[in-house]
């Protein structure tokens, strides 16, 4: 596994929390995301083990002391039946697609490595998902499930949407984050407003929100 990218060490998007770049509803929504990680409600314990390992393979975070929680938000979306609006005809409904998908991934791990998915080392999990994405599968649990469609457009899609909606991911990629109502004035290349972080030069980590 390669190292985690750190293009903007010291940049913390939350430093703008108490500025005109963050309006009340954005503070409320993000605070909720940070402070209230949902409890497991939908998946069974064994499914949860596979889900957590899947999240950790789709977006590994060995560099973080406190990883961005992913599995709890997938579980919450299932519990609330929070669908995306697209049911691919080749797949069952969202909840069933996740349940059968996790079971198929776990079965594939047993078929290839003789162990459950969450018990595999990180590189084996990654190559297993790569094979699934290439539709190179052998476990009978796949039956009529199209592996690539399921992996890319349902499973990984949701996990990635959760990760990049978290402020720590915004800081990681240097995204300016919420900007309402103040917005920006300088729009041209290599220019920044006084209230934008100087991303190219490392800075001391600013105090996180209280």
């Amino acid at each position: 596994m390669t190292d985690a990218p750190r293009p903007y060490p010291g940049y913390d998007v939350l430093a703008k929390w108490d500025t005109p770049s963050w309006d009340a509803i954005t503070r409320e929504v993000v605070a909720h995301r940070l402070d209230r990680v949902p409890e497991r409600r939908f998946f069974e314990p064994a499914e949860w083990e596979t889900l957590a390992a899947l999240c950790d393979t789709v977006l590994p975070q060995p560099d973080r002391e406190r990883p961005i929680p992913l599995a709890p938000f997938v579980d919450a979306a299932m519990a609330e039946d929070r669908t995306t609006g697209t049911r691919w005809a080749a797949l069952p409904t969202m909840r069933e697609a996740w349940r059968r998908g996790l079971a198929a991934i776990d079965a594939e791990a047993r078929a290839v490595y003789g162990r459950r998915f969450h018990a595999l080392p990180a590189d084996a999990r990654e190559s297993l998902l790569r094979a699934i994405d290439d539709e190179d599968v052998r476990a009978p649990e796949w039956r009529d499930l199209p592996p690539r469609r399921l992996f890319r457009h349902v499973l990984a899609n949701e996990i990635v949407r959760i990760y990049y909606a978290h402020p720590d991911a915004w800081s990681e990629i240097g995204f300016g984050g919420p900007a309402s109502p103040r917005g920006y004035v300088r729009l041209s290349a290599n220019r920044r407003d006084a209230w934008e972080a100087d991303l190219e030069r490392p800075k001391r980590r600013s105090e996180r929100r209280k």
Binding site: M1, T2, P5, T57, V58, L129, V160, E172, I173
Partner: peptide, 13 residues
Amino acid sequence: FGMDLRRRMAGYN
């Protein structure tokens, strides 16, 4: 996906 995706996203700006 994986670190490959995180590296690609690190070039966002």
